[in-house]
Simulated assay, not measured.
Amino acid sequence: MIYHGNRLTLKKDVTSEQFEQALAMWHEQGRMPAVESYFIGREYGAGFEWNAFFGLKDLDAYWEYLTHPLHTRSERFALPLMEKFEAYDITDDPDPDFPAKVAELQKRHYAEDPELVRLVQALPSHTGSSAVPGLG
């Protein structure tokens, strides 16, 4: 099982309407076929405002999640609203190559989506498993 986490802080000028729309999109992501479970909530004490976990069965489900149209639509809308973003993964998979396999999926995702690369590069702060070095 993989728990794909997203931590974020919104820009100060994000409207409540924009935030509500982004939140609705994250909930839609949670109902994608690849997602086994999800949780979205406020984060306290670690320098981020919000956190979303998406439970994925395996790396195939991870890829399906990354490339699903609901995820793509959410990225397009929400990334420009973020001041700070971090993606991370927690797994019980004992494979020592797991981090490299996730990095390869993220690199492939970026290679297939130049607009996403542009949006990620425009983020003021981006760290974690989706922050692939050497983009663009």
Rank of each mutant, 00 (worst) to 15 (best):
Q21T: 11
A52T: 08
H71V: 06
L66V: 06
L123Y: 07
E17I: 00
N51R: 10
K12H: 15
S129K: 02
L116R: 06
K12A: 14
R42A: 05
D92G: 11
L81T: 00
E64H: 12
A131M: 12
T72M: 04
W26S: 05
H71L: 02
L116F: 04
H27D: 11
E115P: 06
M25S: 07
D58R: 15
G128H: 06
D60K: 15
G134Q: 09
E28I: 01
T67R: 04
D95H: 14
M25A: 05
F39V: 13
H71I: 05
E17Q: 03
W26Q: 06
E36Q: 15
D92Q: 09
P133T: 02
P124H: 07
A100D: 13
E112G: 07
E20H: 03
Y88N: 09
V14N: 03
G41C: 01
A100I: 00
F48R: 05
R31G: 00
A78I: 03
R7K: 13
V120G: 11
F85L: 11
P96R: 15
A87H: 04
V35I: 14
P80K: 15
P99F: 13
D58Y: 15
Q18F: 02
Q21P: 02
G5T: 07
D58P: 14
K84V: 09
Y3M: 07
L8M: 07
L10H: 04
E17D: 11
V35E: 01
T15G: 08
D60T: 13
E86L: 14
Q21R: 10
I2S: 00
Y44Q: 00
H27S: 06
G45R: 04
A78G: 08
M32Q: 13
Y88V: 01
M1H: 12
T9N: 03
P69N: 14
G134E: 03
M25L: 15
A103Y: 10
S37G: 02
F39K: 11
